[in-house]
């Protein structure tokens, strides 16, 4: 088994203008996603949604700046930590992550042994 971090990158502006109905839909999608992970032979170890990048503070050395580390149209907005036997399984799970305003990136977690 290996661990993968699924990083969710989406257009924040779309969330800023989304109606409560859309938010409700997306929340339900995430619940359904979480319930379906194990049928792929993987396990969800964790996951969170992040506050928008307007709330981010970046620190490089001693310099502190307001905003995210890199300004991009699609910003990191949440993640899931997954345990899966191989990349194909992780990608099968990643395809089911709700990300209607963007997409996800799958990164293997480094192991030290």
């Amino acid at each position: 088994m290996a661990r993968y971090l699924i990083l969710i990158y989406e257009d924040e502006a779309r969330y800023a203008t989304a109606t409560p109905e859309v938010f409700g839909e997306i929340t339900a999608e995430h619940d359904r996603f979480a319930a379906g992970v194990e049928q792929h032979g993987a396990k969800l170890l964790g996951g969170d949604a992040l506050e928008p990048t307007a709330t981010a503070t970046s620190v490089r050395g001693t310099e502190v700046t307001d905003g995210p580390f890199a300004e991009t149209k699609e910003a990191l907005g949440g993640y899931y930590l997954l345990e899966a036997p191989d990349l194909d399984t992780a990608l099968a799970v990643a395809r089911t992550v709700p990300a209607r305003f963007g997409g996800v990136e799958v990164r293997p977690v480094m192991t030290f042994d």
Binding site: A2, P85, D86, L87, D88, V106, P108
Partner: peptide, 10 residues
């Protein structure tokens, strides 16, 4: 190797 792309026929 690192991302564990499986060595198998899908």
């Amino acid at each position: 190797a690192v991302a564990r792309i499986p060595y198998r026929v899908p």
